[in-house]
Amino acid sequence: MNPLEKLFADLPRIPSMPRVVQDLIASLCKEDIDIGSLVAQVKQDQSLSARVLAMANSSAFGVSKKIGAIDQAVTLIGLTALRSLVIASGISKAFAKVEGLDMQVFWRQAMICAGVARQMGKHQGVNREFAYTAGLMHRIGLLLIHLASPAKAQQLSAPDTPSGLEFIELERSLLGLDHCEVGAELALRWNFPPEIQNALRWYVQPLNAEAGPLAAIVNLSEAVTHELLKGEEPEKISVLLDPAVLAKLSFSRADAEKRIEACVDLPESVEALM
């Protein structure tokens, strides 16, 4: 049994996806999904309904009076936002509690990264909903590592733990695998599209020959997210981005800065939904 098979065998259980999320994942390439059926499923989930109403009533939509009906909220926020919210809610609920991790911090960072990835994917020939989902899930393998090997996982959570390739090397030295491999395998088992599986597998190594453009987008998005959370300005953030990764996407720094500018309010808007 290789290390990846052993990790999944050691899991108390493999988290499952709610049916509504599975349906949405299957519909990511479609625009003609049954909105009525989706709204009906949302209404059956109190937590999800609350988040849909919170989004509709947020400052981003500038409504003059409070919206209290799910149907009205869905009409206002639109299919794209609804898909994102349902997918984010479903995936985060699958990992409601993981020992050793602050899940609110984890999902806040993930949701900001997802929003940045959608913006970074604009005009890059990628499915922007794939970009959102890959950004949301980019570190999900780390959750499985904590669930399967909590003692070893604690060594990955020290304040001086490295990042990027050094972090992957540390994971491999401890476990014989890394969170990118684990996340890609989970995406495979959850029947996510191959492009998302590839992005999760290679986002830390976006210049690898096997890495697709979505991996590069997630790589940049994670870097942008960290800087946004520190309150840095778009111009400074764009200068910090890896020029080789920008080149892979045919991004100029001006392109990157423009997309980052569109993301500066994400930390605040995500906070309102947590």
Rank of each mutant, 00 (worst) to 15 (best):
G115W: 04
A117P: 12
K122M: 10
Q124P: 00
G125I: 06
V126H: 02
N127T: 12
E129H: 13
Y132Q: 02
L136T: 04
H138P: 09
R139E: 12
G141T: 03
G141M: 07
L142P: 00
L144V: 05
L144D: 09
L144I: 02
L147G: 07
A151E: 15
K152E: 15
A153H: 06
A153G: 05
Q154S: 11
Q154K: 12
L156T: 11
S157K: 08
S157N: 13
S157E: 13
A158D: 04
D160Q: 13
T161R: 12
T161E: 11
P162E: 11
P162R: 08
G164L: 06
G164I: 02
L165C: 01
I168L: 15
I168D: 15
E169N: 14
L174W: 10
L175K: 05
D178L: 07
E185N: 04
E185V: 00
L188S: 14
W190K: 00
N191V: 06
I196S: 00
N198V: 07
A199P: 05
L200T: 01
Y203A: 04
Y203W: 15
V204N: 10
Q205P: 01
P206W: 10
L207I: 11
L207V: 04
N208F: 12
N208K: 14
A209Q: 15
A211H: 13
P213F: 07
A216T: 05
I217N: 10
V218S: 10
L220A: 08
S221P: 02
V224K: 01
V224L: 06
T225L: 04
H226I: 06
H226G: 14
E227T: 01
L228F: 07
L229I: 13
G231W: 08
G231H: 03
E232K: 09
E232W: 09
P234I: 05
E235I: 04
I237H: 01
L241D: 09
D242K: 03
P243E: 14
V245L: 05
K248W: 11
L249E: 03
